[in-house]
Nucleic acid binder design. Structure first.
Lengths: 197, 197, 197, 197
DNA sequence: TATGAATGAGATTTCATTCAT
DNA sequence: TATGAATGAAATCTCATTCAT
C-alpha cells in the first residue's frame, strides 16, 4: 500500500509546508518535490497528479478529526458534551498546526470546483459524525425533536468553520480553543428544547 | 463616472454569466467580452484588469444585499424580525439569480488570496449591518446581553453561507427561501435569553 | 501645405518632449496627442501614421543642421574651417536642446529597420554636404587627393555621432561644444605625429 | 555551467539566424525555439527571459573580437600595426558571418534603452582594449602624446562602426575587409597631407 | 524505484488606427 | 476640422507531466 511507503507522508507534509508558505498558486510540483527532498518525477510514483496530492493531503489530515470524534461518539458522554468535545478537538487540531490551518481554511479553497467537490466528499464522513450526534440528541430528548438535521449540521459546521477562518485571517492573534465553549453554547441554545413559548 | 456608462454593467453581467457557465478558471477575458458584445480591449476602458472586473462585480452585487438590509434596519421591526428579513432577503436574492449564486458561492472563492481579501473588505459592510442587529437585540433585551457579538456574527454568517453553498452544490434542487424561517429559528434560539437553566 | 497648419509643429514638438521624457517605447500616440493638446484622432489629420510623425520630426529637425551647414559651404572659409564650423554647429544644436539630443541619439534608433532606412535617406542630404567639403578640400590641395570620399565621410560622421552619443549616455555632464576643436583636429590631422609643424 | 550544455549555443545561434532573417521585432521566442529545434519552454531553462538571450548572444559573439585583439595586444607589433590588426579582425569577423553582421549592426540596436545599456557594458571590455593600444602608441611616441584618449577611442570605434553599418546597409555589396587598410590609414594619419614623408 | 531535462498549450493586456458624431 | 470611444491582433512565459536513463 502506497501509504506505507516512506515518501508518501514525506511528500504530503512537504505539500502542507509549501502551500502554507507560498500559497496555493505558488505551490508548484517542483517546489513540493524540493521540499520533500525528492525529484519531480518521483512525486508521480506516489500520486496520480497534483490534484491527487491535495486530495490525499486532505484525507490524511481529516483523519485527525475523524478518529477523535469517533472516540467521543462511542463514549458515554451526553450529546451536548460530545458536541463540545468535537468543537474543542476541531479547534485544538488547527490551533496546534499553523500550516495546516492556513492550508485548509484559506489555500485549499482556491482550488477548482472539481477538486473542491472531491474534498467535500472526503469531508462527508466527518459531517456524518455530526449528524449522529444531532440525531442522538433528538432521540434522547436533549435537542428539540423537530429539528431539521441537515440545517443543524450546516449551522454547526458553518459556525465552526467561519470561526476558524476568521481566526486564521486575523493572523491567529487570539486564542481559538477558548472559543469552543461559547460557540458550543450558541449552538446548543439553537438546538435546545423550547422551555416555554 | 464609469459606473454610469452603459457598458460597465453590461460587462459585469456578462462576467457573471460566463463565470457561472464556464467556471472561474475558464472565464477568459475574451469570453466575457464576447458575451458582453464588446471587443476585448473595451473591457480595459472600464476595468483596470481582470481582477478589477471581479471586485467590481462583487461590489455591485453586494449592493443588492446591503440596500435591502439597510431598509429593514431603519424600519421599526424587532431585531429578531430584522434578522429574519435579512436572511430571507439573502436567500431570495440568490435563489432568484442562479448565475449569481454559483458565482458568489463557488466560483469567486477560487480566486487567489489577495483578491479574496479585497472581496472580504467589501463584505465587511454587510457584516457590520449584522452586528447592528445583534447589538440592538442585546440592548432591547431580546437577545442575551452576554453574547460575544463577533461570535454571533460568525454563527449567523457561517450558517447562512453554508446553507446557501450546500443548496448550490446540491444543484438548487430544493427551495432555499423556505429555509429562512427554520434557519432564523436556530439562530434566534442561540441568541435567545436563557429562560431558565 | 500641412506644414503651415499650426498643429503640425505643435504635434512634432510634443513628440520630441514625450519621446525624450518617456522613451521611444512609451511614447504612445495618445500621450503625444495629450502633450500636444489635441485629440488622438487629430494626429491622423496631420500625419499618415505614427511612423510618419517620427520621419517628419527628423526631417524638421535635420533642417537645423542643413541650413547652417549650407551657409558655411557657400561662404569663403577654407574646407578645414568649414568642417570645424560644421562640427561646432552639430554639437551646438544638440547641446542646446536636451530633448532633441536624447531623441536623435538614443530613442530614434530603437525604431524598426524600415523607419531607420527612411531616416537614413533624410540624413543623406546632410552627408552630401560633408562630401562637398571633403571634395573641395581635396581639390584645393588641403586634403590628400587620394582619399576615398565615402570612407572619410564615414569617419567624420561616425566620429561626430559617436562623440555625441557618448556625451548623451554620460548624462551630458561635460561640455560638448568645446570638443568640437579637438575632434576637428583629430579628423584633420589624425593620430600620427606631424613630422614637421 | 549553462554555457557548456549543448543547447545553450544552439539557441544563441538560432537567435542570430532568426533575428537576421526576420528582424528583431519579428523574432518571437517560438520562432527561435523552432529554429533551434527545441520546445519553447526549453529556452527558459537556459535563459531568464528573451532579453537574456540577446545579452548572452552579444557576450558570446563579442568574444570573437576580444580574444583575437587580446592576442595582438600581447604580441610585439607596433601600436599602429596592432590597430590595423584590430580593424582587420573586426571587419573579417563580420564579413565572414552575414547573419551576425546584420544582427549587431542593425537589429540589436532596435532594442529598448535598458538592453542597450547592458550591451554597452559588454562592449566596454572591447573599448578598453582600444584604449590600451592608444596609450601604448602615445607612450612609445608613435602617436601624439597630447591626444585625448576618450576622443580618439570614439573616433576609432565611431569610424569602424559606421563603416560596417554602411556596408551592411548597402547589402554588403563591396569588400569590407579591404577597407581595413584605408580606414586604418585615415585614423593614423588623418586627412591632412603629410608635410614630409 | 528514482531522476530531472524537456515539453508545449494557453491567456492577459497594449496601443495604433478608425469612424460616427 | 476635431473628437475620443471602440476595436482586435498578437506574443511572452509558466508549470504539470513525461520518459529515457
Amino acid at each position: 500500500m502506497r501509504k506505507n511507503r516512506p515518501k508518501y507522508k514525506q511528500i504530503i507534509d512537504a505539500a502542507v509546508v509549501v502551500i502554507a508558505q507560498h500559497g496555493y498558486h505558488q505551490a508548484q510540483v517542483s517546489k513540493i518535490a524540493k521540499q520533500a527532498g525528492v525529484a519531480d518525477g518521483t512525486i508521480y510514483l506516489y500520486f496520480k497528479n497534483k490534484e491527487d496530492i491535495l486530495i490525499s493531503l486532505f484525507e490524511e489530515k481529516m483523519q485527525l478529526f475523524i478518529e477523535k470524534v469517533s472516540e467521543y461518539i462511542a463514549g458515554d458522554l451526553s450529546p451536548s458534551e460530545k458536541l463540545l468535545k468535537m468543537i474543542e478537538n476541531h479547534f485544538k487540531v488547527l490551533a496546534a498546526d499553523h500550516h495546516l490551518a492556513v492550508v485548509t481554511q484559506l489555500e485549499l479553497r482556491q482550488t477548482n470546483l472539481d477538486l473542491r467537490l472531491k474534498i467535500n466528499s472526503v469531508l462527508k464522513e466527518y459531517l456524518t459524525l455530526v449528524d449522529q450526534i444531532i440525531r442522538e440528541g433528538m432521540e434522547k430528548g436533549e435537542f428539540d425533536s423537530g429539528l431539521d438535521v441537515r440545517l443543524v449540521r450546516q449551522m454547526i459546521f458553518g459556525t465552526v468553520d467561519e470561526t476558524v477562518t476568521t481566526w486564521v485571517m486575523n493572523k491567529e492573534k487570539y486564542d481559538l480553543v477558548s472559543l469552543a465553549a461559547p460557540v458550543h453554547q450558541l449552538i446548543i441554545n439553537g438546538c435546545g428544547k423550547k422551555t416555554a413559548v
